[in-house]
Design a protein around this nucleic acid. Structure first.
Lengths: 184, 184
DNA sequence: GTAATATGTATCAAAACGATATATCAAATT
DNA sequence: AATTTGATATATCGTTTTGATACATATTAC
């Protein structure tokens, strides 16, 4: 992977809006972008250390600490903002998928069709659930499109809705084909 | 990541059909499944060594060597077939996305809308190209559906076509919204 | 002839994952 | 009042994967 650290951009992007701790960053990732990007503590904390050393972020006082245990808050620096911008302005982007469901389906021929049907059903259930949540986000965001930031969030949510609905259409077609095969 | 090595299943799945070398495996991955799963030499060769040690695959003679340099061919063992099957029969699957395009869009608010339009255009061009190839595959596979294996390949190709077309529809909508914002 | 390209195996540093360790604090339970 | 539970919070470890590079042989092009 050598010399890239995409997690840096995730963190810088989030810090561009508000100061956050490593724990907060993880929460934001899980809540808002996890359907198209994930991040673990094992990459977040080392990235914060590295970026502090490199001057892209800096530690700030834990203001408004009303209870809860002490936390280390980070702020983006002007250098960090520059790094974020130049990444944004570079239209090259790597979109990397790992669909274990498709991997199993691709090799489905070594087992009975029913096995593949089960795998598709499990996938479909997960997708249905996530789609529900995504639609809820999309709906809420559609009401605050006057705020430019929210428009960007709305567009990513819409991407999710559009693709997840495509997944479900495919599930129906694929299952039909496999059930036909199963009856042979 | 600890204790999983998904690349093992990719290799076992491919070896279930024919004996292959590490180099061949890489080619098969790039040609057939790269739109939903990737694999590098840096994971393939260590996996082959580990699985040989564990008895899931074994080295076989390089039959039909008509020129070309010497290669190390591998075959799946009965133990390997068992491992492949029990993975297939487990309907739990992790589908993990890394859409750098969406990441950039999510943080689009820190730059001008034109930047995001450029990013979407770059994405759209890539998708259009891949869709072309996927449709070609799908078309060819639709003619040989009598072979059960080909049906599974057809279904994965169809998944790609369905989702890539959804991507393109979304691109058009997103661009429109951003162009409106750009004129403000 | 020789330069460029394709074939082939292998390893390395860096990045990311998922699990785990450790600790603090608030709320609920006993 | 003491204890357990669970949320908050930081950090690190072993494992997997990536992408780059090294190295060597065979084929094709000029």
């Amino acid at each position: 992977m050598a010399k890239d650290r995409k997690i840096d951009m995730v963190i810088l992007g989030l810090l561009a809006h508000e100061n956050l701790s490593g724990y907060d960053i993880k929460k934001r990732i899980d809540q808002s972008i996890s359907f198209f990007w994930k991040g673990s503590f094992g990459s977040i904390y080392p990235s914060l250390s590295a970026m502090t050393r490199e001057g892209l972020v800096e530690k700030v006082e834990d203001s408004e600490r009303n209870g809860g245990r002490e936390k280390i808050n980070y702020a983006i620096t002007s250098q960090g903002k520059e790094a974020l911008r130049s990444w944004l302005e570079d239209s090259r982007a790597v979109n990397d998928m790992k669909y274990e469901t498709l991997l199993k389906l691709f090799f489905g021929g070594v087992a009975e069709p029913q096995i593949s049907i089960n795998n598709i059903n499990a996938f479909e259930n997960e997708v249905r659930e996530s789609l529900h949540i995504l639609k809820f986000y999309q709906d809420n965001l559609s009401k605050v499109l006057n705020n430019p930031d929210h428009m960007y969030y709305y567009l990513t949510a819409s991407f999710g809705v559009e693709t997840y609905e495509a997944y479900l259409r495919w599930c129906t077609k694929a299952r039909k084909m496999l059930e036909k095969e199963n009856k042979k």
